[in-house]
Design a protein around this nucleic acid. Sequence first.
DNA 1: TTGCATACCTCGTAGTTCTAGGCATTATAC
DNA 2: GTATAATGCCTAGAACTACGAGGTATGCAA
Lengths: 115, 115
Amino acid sequence: MATSNPSFMNGVPELLVLRLLWGREMYGYEIVQAIREETGDVVSLGEGVVYPVLHALERSGAITSERRPVGGRSRIYYALSPKGAARLTELTELWSKITGAVQQVLVGGGRAGLV
Amino acid sequence: MATSNPSFMNGVPELLVLRLLWGREMYGYEIVQAIREETGDVVSLGEGVVYPVLHALERSGAITSERRPVGGRSRIYYALSPKGAARLTELTELWSKITGAVQQVLVGGGRAGLV
DNA sequence: TTGCATACCTCGTAGTTCTAGGCATTATAC
DNA sequence: GTATAATGCCTAGAACTACGAGGTATGCAA
């Protein structure tokens, strides 16, 4: 209810997951850590965020999964499908467009500066 | 469910409204149009988004309001308070941090390019 | 007097992230 | 040997947010 922090995170999990899967296969737990590392801990998505995203992406045909036993453990590796690649392109362009438009307002306008 | 487009708009309305009010007073209807114009129609927030944001910001003390009759009509002008200015700084920094982190993932990583 | 632009407002819905848990196996530390 | 952390998967519920649809009222032009 509070006036709390807008986290600017809408759609970001899907975008990041797709981007990470672009070129190499990865499993869920690995993706969670990769996001943390590659963003320098700025973005830190829990497993409760990443796994549902993966399942939704698989349902929509954007990624495919394959269970593999590794060192006695079982991992589910995900790979980007052509559909997922298209979705990635689409989202990346949208991201660029939106952030560019916001930046325009932040920089431009009446006074100059603050950014 | 998961079909749809993430709009990347989380928290953006609050940020844009605060930024527009930085330096000049504006009224709701004017803000709606300003966002449309300054973003080149990339971001188009309806009145159903802007007015609730304004009310929430006023409740939290980030902006103050003053009703003024203009040409027979009544407008409610909003002005940024010190608290709102601080909030704007905070949000701007967070925005910069998040988008920077996402950009890092989009650009960096295994392959190069796509952005 | 019919329509359009201005100017305000609220409610309900939908879509998302997040927290907080739970389960099971393996490696590490004491 | 036994507790603890790390790996690796999962779901359910709450909380938040943007959005569309709809409502009221005034002024101005055709």
